[in-house]
């Protein structure tokens, strides 16, 4: 079940995807039970396997407003262990802040998951392995990826639900920028910007496609994300084994049209489903939890009709 053996299937040949939406009022609420219950819906073959959770750790975050909340990360780790995974690692390679220890300490990650050395991998410092890209959307052709990512049986992308000042939104596909190692490409990984964010995202996700996505939408971020926006209470966790469908569902919850988000629309051709009729919702409906997010002026075109305009 290597997450890297993702099959590129045209959308019209791909089976309907399922996405679970769970309401969670706050980070103090019970997270493990609803998350385990949702995960069981997908019957992931993880017994005895190594799972890598890939949260989104952007920078020091003492208020826990920017990064994937440590309570969600810790709950996911516990869930995968309960479901039989042999090892559950956490790893990220922040794009701008080189001091990963400062980031995880600022957000008190150790208090949620225990000793970091036992389970946390700084993907920016991991040994890299050159990997041919499975698609040629960008001119990159190959990239170095961390051994920990390539060696995991299942990569779980765990972003926070946020708007993004370059890409429109940052969700589970965009979160995969963090698996590209800084020790090869710098801080930020500027080679990806030069290759084109949309195209690089497609190549990365086709090559090291996350096999599962859990989006922390309990409190998201709107406006000038990913770091300088405004916290937005949304009260959801969104989960699924098709990261494109998960991100499309999140976009709809945020009051945005996923078809107009460039990289999502492109990903919908080969990597997963964008169209609403191809996504079966489990748990809550989008309509019940929809919470329109403010967007920067340049991204007003992403707004769904009736969702209101951002700043």
């Amino acid at each position: 079940m290597s997450s890297h053996a993702a099959t590129l299937i045209p959308s019209h040949q791909r089976e309907v995807s399922r996405v679970a939406i769970r309401c969670v009022a706050s980070y103090q609420a019970e997270l493990i039970e609803p998350m385990t219950e949702a995960l069981r819906e997908f019957d992931l073959p993880i017994r005895g396997k190594t799972v890598l959770l890939k949260p989104n750790f952007v920078g020091p975050d003492p208020q826990n407003q920017i990064n994937t909340h440590p309570a969600v990360v810790a709950a996911a780790r516990e869930c995968f262990l309960r479901l039989g995974a042999e090892r559950v690692l956490l790893g990220d390679g922040p794009a701008l802040e080189r001091d990963t220890e400062a980031i995880v300490e600022s957000m008190h990650l150790r208090e949620y998951i225990g000793t970091l050395s036992e389970c946390f991998v700084d993907l920016n410092l991991d040994a890299p392995r050159r990997t041919a890209l499975r698609t040629n959307a960008s001119p990159l052709k190959q990239l170095y990826f961390p051994e920990t990512v390539l060696g995991a049986d299942l990569v779980v992308s765990m972003p926070r639900m946020k708007t993004h000042h370059w890409a429109g939104v940052t969700l589970s596909l965009k979160n995969m920028f963090g698996v590209v190692p800084g020790n090869c490409y710098g801080w930020p990984k500027n080679i990806l910007h030069w290759a084109g964010i949309t195209r690089a995202l497609l190549d990365i996700n086709s090559t090291v496609r996350p096999g599962f996505a859990i989006v922390d939408g309990i409190i998201g971020m709107e406006g000038n994300g990913p770091t300088q926006g405004t916290p937005k209470q949304c009260g959801v966790l969104v989960l699924g084994d098709d990261p494109v469908a998960v991100d499309s569902t999140c976009a709809r919850i945020m009051g945005l049209l996923p078809e107009r988000i460039d990289y999502l629309a492109q990903a919908g051709l080969m990597l997963g489903h964008v169209k609403e009729e191809k996504i079966q919702q489990i748990g809550e409906t989008i309509a019940r939890v929809q919470t329109p997010f403010e967007v920067l002026r340049d991204f007003r075109k992403l707004k769904a009709p009736g969702a209101g305009f951002g700043n």
Binding site: Y185, G186, W187, P188, N190, I191, H193, W194
Partner: peptide, 8 residues
């Protein structure tokens, strides 16, 4: 950081 990209 790498050839062919921007100044940082």
């Amino acid at each position: 950081w790498t050839p062919g990209t921007s100044s940082w």
